[in-house]
């Protein structure tokens, strides 16, 4: 065994390794970019889901924005108050209380309640169907129900039941991915504790809506008239609730002649059974329906 060649190999590799080590050490000294150490501390506190719910590209980008651009510390919808407080501690500022939000699909037109325009078979994607006359339901504003929001949700909080997407509130982190994914713009972030919402986004006029769907908002304004705090406005033929004013009294839920203002206590029309229970009053007795019409037109 040639001891000399082993020694030579050892020496050359050792010198070479030392050289490379020095090179990278020098490089890190001369090429280092000053990075605020608070960025790493904040990233440690964030959930690192990189969901983008804060409006930035990911947790790292959000941390960067907090430190360098003074972004608010309470933007992380996944972490909520706990993370906001931890981040605020790193930054040495007070965190404001965050309101926990949840996504809500504003359509109640399940398969049996909304009339169909055509039967669709093809790409399982709402975006492509939305281009075919705004979906297979006669109502051009309704939920298409092919689950583009389901795919967008990273937390598995959305499922499609009876042709309408439904959010499981407990799993929802209000990251807003579904809001931007929905081609019908049907999903809205509401305060988590809110009990009432209008389950329709149809901007069609009352008579048109009535022909298309059994559970559409006809824009009669009865809810707005009866709201004790004036939190409801009817704009473009659809009632909208201002959640800053709403006190969750439930008056609108009782007064709505179409029964499309839902209350969390009644629960959303998860199944057709529940939807059917509510609908006959307004739909199956024509006389009664006409009566409501008269009241609305007044």
């Amino acid at each position: 065994m040639d001891f000399g060649s082993i020694l030579l190999a050892f020496l050359i590799m050792a010198v070479f390794g030392l050289f490379l080590g020095l090179l990278s050490a020098l490089a890190s000294k001369f090429l280092s970019v000053k990075k605020d150490e608070r960025i790493d501390l904040i990233v440690d506190q964030l959930p690192k889901a990189n969901c983008g719910g804060c409006g930035f590209a990911g947790c790292e980008a959000y941390a960067q924005a907090i430190v360098s651009d003074g972004a608010p510390v309470n933007k992380c919808p996944v972490g909520g108050d706990k993370v906001a407080a931890a981040v605020a501690k790193v930054m040495g500022v007070e965190s404001k209380k965050t309101v926990r939000m949840r996504a809500q699909v504003l359509c109640s037109g399940t398969t049996s309640l909304a009339n169909r325009k055509y039967n669709y078979a093809g790409l399982e994607d709402c975006l492509s169907v939305a281009k075919l006359g705004n979906g297979p339901k006669e109502c051009p504003y309704g939920c298409i129900g092919l689950g583009t929001c389901v795919k967008a949700c990273q937390f598995g909080a959305i499922k499609v039941e009876n042709g309408v997407a439904v959010v499981e509130y407990e799993k929802c982190h209000a990251c807003g991915m579904c809001v931007s994914a929905c081609p019908q713009k049907l999903i809205q972030l509401l305060p988590f504790d809110t009990d009432v919402w209008v389950g329709c986004r149809s901007h069609d006029k009352g008579p048109v809506v009535r022909n298309l769907c059994k559970v559409g908002c006809i824009g009669c304004g009865i809810c707005a008239k009866n709201c004790p705090v004036g939190a409801i406005m009817v704009t473009e033929s659809v009632a909208q609730i201002d959640y800053e004013k709403c006190i969750n009294c439930g008056t609108c839920v009782e007064k709505c002649p179409r029964k499309i203002i839902w209350s969390g206590k009644v629960q959303m029309a998860l199944g057709d059974t529940l939807g059917n229970d509510l609908v006959p009053e307004t739909v199956e007795s024509p006389k009664r329906r006409r009566k409501t019409d008269e009241t609305t037109s007044e």
Partner: peptide, 17 residues
């Protein structure tokens, strides 16, 4: 392997800067 690893490291730092 050593060369490539060092090279990539330095390139990364250089680009960042």
């Amino acid at each position: 392997i050593a060369i490539i690893a060092t090279l990539v490291q330095i390139i990364e730092m250089f680009l960042q800067k």
